Simulated assay, not measured.
Amino acid sequence: MSLTVRSLQLWLPALAHFEPGHPLREWLARADRLAAGGKGYFGGLADHFSSVDAKLTAAAITRQFLAGDAADGLWLSADPAWIQPDMNGVRLLACGRMQLDRDAAQALAEALRPVFEEVGMQLEVSTPDHWHLRLPADISLPDFAAPAQALGEDLAQHLPQGPEGRRWRVLLNDIQVLLHQHPLNRQRQARGLSPVNSLWLWGGGRLPTGITTQFGGVISDDVLLRALASLAGITQQARSPETIATSKAGSLIDLQDLPARDIATHWWPCVQPLLEQQPVLLQFASGERWQRKPWHRWRVWRRVGR
Rank of each mutant, 00 (worst) to 15 (best):
N88L: 14
W168E: 03
N197L: 08
L135I: 00
S198V: 01
L178P: 07
W267K: 06
R169C: 13
H22Y: 03
N173T: 15
L184Y: 08
M98E: 08
T62Q: 13
P183M: 04
F144H: 05
A60H: 03
M87A: 15
A94C: 13
R239A: 12
R302I: 00
P208D: 10
V52D: 02
L224Q: 03
I219E: 01
A190I: 14
I83F: 01
H296E: 02
F49S: 02
E124P: 08
P208E: 07
A232Q: 05
A94L: 09
L133V: 09
E118F: 03
I234C: 07
D154S: 06
D53P: 05
L207M: 05
I263K: 03
A111W: 00
H182S: 04
Q291E: 11
T265N: 14
F284R: 02
Q106A: 12
N185M: 09
E164Q: 14
M121V: 05
A111C: 11
M98G: 04
T213P: 01
V177G: 06
P20V: 05
A190V: 12
E124R: 11
E153T: 14
W200P: 07
T213H: 06
E110I: 04
A67L: 15
T235N: 10
R299M: 07
A232N: 09
L275D: 01
D221P: 01
L74I: 13
P114I: 01
L34C: 09
H180T: 14
A105T: 08
S230D: 11
I61C: 01
D254S: 05
I211C: 10
M87Y: 15
L93S: 11
H158R: 10
W267V: 10
I253R: 00
A264R: 11
L281K: 01
D143G: 15
A156T: 12
M98Q: 08
N185P: 06
S247W: 00
Q214R: 13
P136F: 04
Q291W: 11
C270T: 13
G217S: 12
A148H: 12
E110D: 13
R166Q: 15
R206H: 10
T213L: 05
P208G: 06
S194E: 14
I61T: 04
Q181T: 12
D138C: 08
M87V: 15
P241E: 08
A78Y: 02
L172Q: 14
P85H: 06
M121L: 07
A70M: 08
D138P: 02
G210A: 12
P142D: 08
L282V: 02
R25Y: 02
L108W: 08
D257T: 15
V196W: 05
M1I: 13
R169H: 12
R289Y: 04
R63W: 10
D72P: 03
V271T: 04
H180L: 14
L10F: 15
